[in-house]
Write a protein that binds this DNA or RNA. Sequence first.
DNA 1: CGGTATCCCATTTGATACTG
DNA 2: CAGTATCAAATGGGATACCG
Lengths: 160, 160
Amino acid sequence: MRWRAVARANCSVARSLAVVGERWTMLILREAFLGQRRFDDFQRNTGIARNILAARLRALVKHGIFQRARANGGGHIEYRLTDKGLDLYPVLVSLMRWGDQWLAGKDGPPLFLIHRGCGRTTRPAIVCTHCGGPLVAREMLAVPRAKLASARRVLRRAGA
Amino acid sequence: MRWRAVARANCSVARSLAVVGERWTMLILREAFLGQRRFDDFQRNTGIARNILAARLRALVKHGIFQRARANGGGHIEYRLTDKGLDLYPVLVSLMRWGDQWLAGKDGPPLFLIHRGCGRTTRPAIVCTHCGGPLVAREMLAVPRAKLASARRVLRRAGA
DNA sequence: CGGTATCCCATTTGATACTG
DNA sequence: CAGTATCAAATGGGATACCG
């Protein structure tokens, strides 16, 4: 299979990767979440080549992740995260958390996240929206929509 | 900058991407989380070229994400997720959720996640470990370790 | 089954220079 | 500032065949 076919796979992971899985794209998004909005700032902070950056930004705008606009007053050009773009935050945070946990030097994580709502530094976790418990891979079952009903039956019978 | 330098960036996102950010790698991991463990199954289910798959698996083993071993009884060869590998689950789930939300066809998401613990299908979310509230990008502040103390002061003074 | 070995092509990349 | 233009070099990708 060609990589390009991945965009049309019946899998949300594959489709997402087709949009944000290219090299550099996540680092551009990182900068965006850190507050950067301008071409040259993206360029400097990531070290990406200018032509590649231009291509990535174009694609991200096309996919509705950035909105390209002039700053207030008609100043410079800005790339602002749309709602669709902002919604990628969990992906970035998950990557960061994993790196914090498994790849950090002995100084520990370089960056901390403060949750304005509660004013605390937080180590975000992914949880079950029903029971609030942390989602651990081993406790999860992935079921294609067609098999949902039967999977539920089996689980119930098993006394879960 | 060269891409290779990214692995040594002082940023957990960049470092993580250096390990799992290559093309195909996430799709291999997806298969692993769906229960696959064998070369040919990875190959068939992802459509990746065999030589590339071999290279990716080698790298993932080297990075301690897979453990390569013979199946019980000395049968075939298996790639099993280590703890480090299993810990990538949130990354995969976040990608999947974003795709579910923004890229799914009109049939809706192709795959559902059942949390064995509570027996319900769940839509995982990333939350603050302190207050339990959902983490929304706009409500977060990223602070380099060196500026942690001052950032906290400012927040407190602001009455947050 | 679980890979290697080859070979070739396509794409990506990075550097640099240029422009309105 | 926000890009284009160009171009050489590197890498990655895919198909196929082969092997223990």
